[in-house]
Write a protein that binds this DNA or RNA. Structure first.
Lengths: 301, 301
DNA sequence: GTCTAATAATTGTCCAGGACATATATGGGT
DNA sequence: ACCCATATATGTCCTGGACAATTATTAGAC
């Protein structure tokens, strides 16, 4: 019986649940109950890891662990998102067109997806493409992901291909010294980059000079980078997956470390229900981001 | 005295040292010694965090923690890499040209760097550009990084701008159904993407169909993706920063999970001193990657 | 002297069980 | 229906111990 077992570190990696949480759940709820290795180390069987992934997904969708642990497996699979839904933008494009794009991803049709998106980009222009195609598509992928309708690798493929399209489109815009200078990055535990790229596209379209620093920048380096690049604005993106309660605690010291004259803007799905932080501008939508930029340009003229 | 303090989770994020390690070092070596908050929680002052970052960097360069803890701060700053150096490729291009590119990054000259790289790409063609410019440049950045000659945000800027250049160049290549189908990704704890992009460029140049899945793919999803995309080859990249001892333990189950007829290729600086794993092809250089591909195409014809 | 193998030191990861802060739910009053 | 106070649920941190894995050192063989 060469039964495969995962140690607690591997489970932490695969599920995103910390070692502390895994041990605590075992203590409190009696699940998971891993085997024990020679030395009392936990060894998780694959089916428990699978179930933990499912539970994690449902928790991200708003369910509470206590209930989930007590729910039989068969029922778990049927649960729907419980979080207060994101208010749907009114003038959303026909969902049918998005479905077609999603279908291409789920069929793993790389060339077909790229071609369909290129066509939309050409037809809509970059601004409408970002607002009416990429943004709602990303939301849909996020929702489907929460419902378990996407495999990990399908979500990765979507992200990778969409990233490439956006980067390519942004690269085609005129460059050169312009105003304001906007430094774009994300917090240390935030690896998601699509929101950042959408913001970059919108800012670049309005004539800002964007300095893309990728994701996961330590806080101290964000302020150093702002100085080094003489940035006017630092823009951070938080995805819905980011632990929201940590955001204010993270923004306050950052705001304090930045020179007063450097603006700090934050956006992304993760900030929707986060309290305001003094000196930090929350941008709930891409439209808001654009108008904030126009305002900046008007004031500083 | 509103002295800033970091909790242990923040220090883990910022330094990459696990909570367990931070507590263990405190117990064993007497450093770091954080203050304690109201409830006995550790609160690390900024200078200790700074020192921990330095120590981490020196450890990645081959130093042992026991010595480092006992070394006075002034001396720490002077330590050089201790690891056995990477054997220099013989026909390396004039270092002077690379220095010029590095200088542009260190001056935070976004436009200048992009322009210089674009010129080199146009002059050398994609294949030579990757082999003679991007690859040695990445190595140089890695070395300078270990020496502490780069800020975090400078390294991020380099990575981001270089990624964009490569992606753009790859996108310009002809596409369509070709052979073999190569799935490109990296292991769960490996976020570095440049090596993967260089490999993609080389493979695409020789007529392979590349399916880029981004980085950090859970193992079970790698094999699922290989099936879904009917891949002929799965290519993984490991950077030098990846804990090398974990690599064989990671490759063996992956190899077992993949269908026999799907090849598994690994490359990147991280595999240089890793033992061979049966059924896994190690590609130590980009040239080797190209010839492996040509061989595959010859055999399968 | 140089190589190899055995031994010792070093270092990271895991464990148990307890304490506490904070987030979320629940009930009562208006 | 709304708001506040209390209770419950949940995650993070703590201490101190054990052990496995890696790396260095020593002893012996050639």
């Amino acid at each position: 019986m060469g039964a495969i077992r995962f140690n607690i570190a591997a489970v932490e990696r695969d599920t995103g649940l910390s070692k502390d949480v895994l041990r605590m759940w075992e203590r409190r709820y009696g699940f998971p109950v891993p085997d024990r290795g020679a030395n009392g180390e936990r060894g998780y069987p694959p089916d428990q890891v699978e179930r933990l992934r499912l539970i994690k997904r449902l928790m991200d969708a708003g369910h509470r662990p206590g209930k989930l642990m007590a729910t039989p497996l068969a029922e778990l699979a049927t649960l729907a998102p419980r979080r207060k839904g994101i208010p749907e933008p009114a003038g959303r494009p026909a969902a049918g067109e998005l479905d077609e794009l999603l279908r291409l991803i789920k069929q793993h049709d790389v060339a077909g997806y790229q071609q369909a998106m290129q066509q939309r980009l050409a037809r809509q222009g970059l601004q409408r493409f970002v607002q009416d195609t990429v943004a709602p598509l990303t939301s849909r992928v996020g929702e489907d992901w929460e419902r378990g309708a996407f495999e990990v690798f399908e979500e990765h493929l979507f992200t990778e291909l969409t990233k490439r399209l956006l980067r390519q489109a942004v690269a085609a815009l005129p460059t050169g010294p312009r105003a304001p200078r906007i430094l774009l990055t994300s917090a240390p535990d935030e690896p998601h980059v699509l929101g950042l790229l959408m913001a970059e596209a919108m800012f670049a379209l309005e004539g800002a000079e964007c300095i893309p620093l990728g994701t996961q920048m330590p806080l101290r380096d964000i302020s150093r980078a702002a100085l080094a690049h003489r940035a006017d604005i630092v823009a951070l993106s938080f995805s819905t997956a980011f632990p929201q309660r940590q955001i204010p605690a993270l923004l306050r010291p950052l705001r304090a470390a930045l020179p007063e004259e450097v603006a700090l803007w934050v956006g992304g799905g993760g900030i929707r229900w986060v309290a305001d932080v003094p000196g930090v501008k929350r941008l709930l939508t891409l439209e808001e981001a654009t108008s904030a930029l126009l305002e900046w340009q008007a004031v500083s003229r």
